[in-house]
């Protein structure tokens, strides 16, 4: 076994230090060492998008990074997007528009949705479908996710694009 390495990550606004083997994926470290189990593992080879997080503000697959690579980085997980009890508009929209069923893809979907709207405040359904194609959902057939993201985009625009 390789020596553990000490890693400091800013997670959802707070600095956290963990000690991990170099081979440990960032996804596993988020779940096991940081205790944030909202980041899900669906494939561990970068296809499904369930482990999507924001790394320094950009969407990435946390199963395709090692935890040691996140040393010094800022990450945002699903647990970090609500403002206290106030849900992020993307979270509210997913519930209101039935953009989730089993909920397993939902954390990754919501983060991907936030990313899309952050780059395109008024995305068309087709743009949402193309931009979010890296996130798989097995339950919804996607239509209601597209509706959710569109609805959230409208709210986010009205709120001045704050995320």
């Amino acid at each position: 076994m390789a020596e553990n390495m000490s890693v400091v990550i800013n997670v959802n606004g707070a600095g956290r230090a963990v000690s991990v083997e170099p081979r440990k994926t960032l996804a596993d470290a988020i779940r096991e060492d940081l205790g944030l189990t909202g980041t899900h593992l669906g494939c561990e080879h970068g296809v499904c998008g369930a482990c999507t997080i924001l790394l320094d503000g950009e969407v990435v697959r946390s199963c395709l990074m090692l935890a040691v690579q996140a040393d010094g980085a800022e990450i945002t997980t699903i647990e970090g997007i609500a403002d206290g009890d106030d849900l992020h508009p993307m979270q509210s929209a997913f519930s209101e528009y039935h953009g989730l069923q089993c909920g397993f893809c939902t954390p990754g979907m919501i983060l991907a949705g936030i990313d899309v709207v952050s780059r395109n405040p008024d995305p068309s359904p087709q743009e949402i479908r193309e931009e979010m194609g890296g996130n798989i959902c097995r339950c919804t057939g996607y239509q209601k996710i597209v509706e959710s993201v569109q609805a959230a985009a409208a709210v986010m625009s009205a709120e001045g694009g704050s995320a």
Partner: peptide, 26 residues
């Protein structure tokens, strides 16, 4: 050499790649 890792890390996860040493140039 570990670059973006979008191909190498899946291979590591599948244990299709088993380098003794990983040099991360990020």
């Amino acid at each position: 050499v570990l670059a973006g890792g979008q191909s190498l890390v899946p291979m590591l996860n599948f244990r299709l790649a088993r380098p003794a040493h990983l040099i991360d140039v990020n």
